[in-house]
Design a binder for these strands. Structure first.
Lengths: 165, 165
DNA sequence: TGCAAAATCACCCGAAAGTATGACTTTGAT
DNA sequence: ATCAAAGTCATACTTTCGGGTGATTTTGCA
């Protein structure tokens, strides 16, 4: 018996942990609604100005929406430090040049790098806020430009010609 | 005279182009306000349900805020390149030691290397005179030992821990 | 201003990769 | 000689990739 209740407690806790932000947002929204109710009383009792009321709600919730979006889409402004290996020899910045010679676009190069980190297409899509199909398309074009058939082949070749460390 | 009017037209057009998103947003907002005015009429005339009205406004403007935030916060990742000198120091034969520590067998390591060259499972099977199933089995075991799910992930990890150059 | 390239997304289909399980043989060490 | 680990292979199933085609929107440049 205790086992079952414990299980449910655990379940609830894990659900809370998982969707904490959503739950917190809901709570904040509820709070705001209460606040609005109060404001409603104020305005209705004092003067029946609908428009001011609507405007205030609009502004507040616009800001709220912006805030939520900022919160949710955390990885927006990350500062990525990329270490570029500089051999003392005369081969600097091959990746840039090689990429230009091959005609790789920014996106293609970016996705190539994520591929090199072992991410699946779906994971790349999630990370870049893109569709899975888009990733596939970019990779297809990349494969054409690198003249390969598989992602592992692409990585090997990219490494060989200095596109990737 | 035509010159002056033309100039102003040009000016307006260029301003429009420059701040198109802002102008469009303003327009959308104005439209929404009109819509709200209409809804206000509806609700006021039909039944005086303040809360539904407020809720609708809240939802609409929350979504609007989210949308705006998404649009505005476009510049995501700032890429800072950091140059690091690399020396061809004395680091031989890490692979052997690392392989032993992980408990990789000879075959598994061999197949890992072929995978790193971008070969498909079938090509590896052909090259080693083995069955495709055998390659899959070895790779499965390798993935277990490396704690990964995909070959690209395996390659990344293997490279990271020095199994592979 | 208009055009080409880049970027985005969708749908379909087949191939490749990965998972799980079981079985048999070889090898190496005690 | 025995036993465990390594190696080999199979079957069945699911998931992921890759190729092809087409369409729309954004962007950068001439």
């Amino acid at each position: 018996m205790l086992n079952i209740t414990g299980f449910f407690l655990f379940l609830i806790m894990s659900i809370f942990r998982k969707y904490r932000s959503i739950i917190l947002y809901s709570a904040a929204l509820a709070l705001l609604l209460v606040l609005l109710r109060w404001m409603e009383w104020q305005f209705v009792l004092v003067n029946n100005s609908f428009e001011i009321y609507a405007g205030i709600i609009a502004i507040i919730f616009t800001l709220l929406g912006i805030w939520v979006a900022m919160k949710v889409s955390k990885p927006k402004t990350i500062l990525v430090e990329k270490e570029v290996l500089v051999k003392s020899g005369p081969e600097f910045r091959i990746n840039e040049k090689a990429a230009n010679e091959l005609g790789l676009s920014k996106r293609e190069f970016e996705i190539l790098e994520l591929t090199a980190k072992g991410l699946s297409n779906q994971q790349i899509a999630d990370q870049l806020f893109l569709s899975l199909n888009t990733i596939k398309t970019h990779l297809s074009n990349l494969f054409l430009k690198l003249d390969v058939q598989r992602r592992t082949q692409a990585l090997e070749k990219a490494r060989r010609i200095g596109l990737i460390p």
